[in-house]
Amino acid sequence: MHRGLKSLLLAAPLGVVALAGCSAPSAPQVTFYSHGEAIEVAPARFCDATGENCAPPAEDPVGKLRVPEKSPLQISVPGEVSATPWQVSYIYRGVDGQEVEGRTGVIRPDERHSYTLRVPPDGTRLEHVEVQQYSGLLVLGEDGGVDFPIAATWVIDPT
C-alpha cells in the first residue's frame, strides 16, 4: 500500500470529513483515462460532514489502469467533487529510479471538472495517483496554522 493511501486511511478516524448529510453519502465515481482506456473508480474513503457516517470502500479501492511512459493521464470528476476544492496527488519514479511525490495546486470549487496529469517526458513512470477532495472544515494544524482535511479520495496505481 502506498504511503499516501496508507496515511489517509490511518488519518480517517482523526476527523476526515466531507459534505453534509445525515447518513452515509452516495459515493461518486471518478474517471481516469489514458491511452484509449478508461476506468471509473469508487472512493477509497468518503464520509459525511461529521466524519462518522462513511460509505464503505469497495473491496479493492485502488483502481488499475495502464499508463504508458510519456502518456498523460486524464482525470474527470463529477459535479459533487468539482463543486468543492480538490487536488491531484501523485507519485512517479524518475529514470534515475528516484521516487518523486507531487501534487497540483488546489482546484477551486466549480473551476473545472477535469485535469490532465503529465509527468516529465524522459521515461518517467507514474506509480500512484489520488484525487483528493477537501472538506469544508478547518482543523488546527500542528504548526499553529489551519489545515483543510481531505474528505474523500479516489486512487489508482498505474500499471
Rank of each mutant, 00 (worst) to 15 (best):
P158N: 11
G102R: 05
P78D: 08
T31H: 06
P57S: 12
P120F: 11
W86P: 02
E40H: 15
L8P: 04
T84D: 02
G97W: 09
S76F: 05
S23W: 08
D147V: 14
E127T: 14
M1T: 06
Q132Y: 04
K6D: 06
V131M: 02
W154E: 04
S135A: 15
P57T: 05
S71K: 13
A58R: 03
V95S: 15
P43T: 00
I39F: 10
D143G: 11
S23E: 14
V41G: 03
E142A: 14
E59Y: 05
E59R: 11
A38I: 10
V155C: 00
I107V: 14
A58I: 04
Q87A: 09
W86E: 01
T153S: 10
V67M: 09
A38L: 15
E127M: 14
V146W: 12
L5P: 00
V95D: 13
T116W: 07
R45N: 00
S34W: 04
I107Y: 00
R112A: 12
Y115S: 04
H2C: 01
P109C: 07
K6R: 15
E130I: 06
G102S: 12
A24F: 03
P149N: 10
V129A: 02
A11T: 03
G102Q: 10
L10W: 01
E40V: 06
E127Q: 15
W154H: 01
Y90W: 15
L10K: 10
V88R: 03
A49E: 11
G36I: 13
Q132P: 03
P72V: 07
P68H: 14
D157K: 10
S135E: 05
T124Y: 07
T153M: 05
L19I: 01
E142S: 13
G51M: 03
V77Y: 01
A151P: 05
L5G: 01
S23K: 14
S135C: 11
V30A: 03
P149H: 13
A27E: 00
G141P: 11
R103C: 07
Y134H: 13
G63P: 01
A27L: 03
G36Q: 12
Y92D: 04
H113I: 09
P28T: 00
E40R: 13
L73S: 01
D110Y: 14
R45M: 06
S82K: 10
V77E: 02
N53R: 08
G105I: 04
G21P: 03
L65D: 06
P56D: 06
V100E: 04
R108D: 12
A58C: 07
T116R: 10
D60G: 07
A55H: 03
S7I: 08
W154Y: 01
G141Q: 13
R66Y: 13
Q29E: 07
R125A: 15
V131C: 05
A38K: 15
P109Y: 09
M1P: 01
R66C: 09
K64A: 14
V119G: 02
D60T: 09
K70I: 13
H35C: 12
G15R: 00
Y92T: 05
V119M: 11
D96Q: 11
P85C: 08
P43C: 06
L65V: 11
A12E: 03
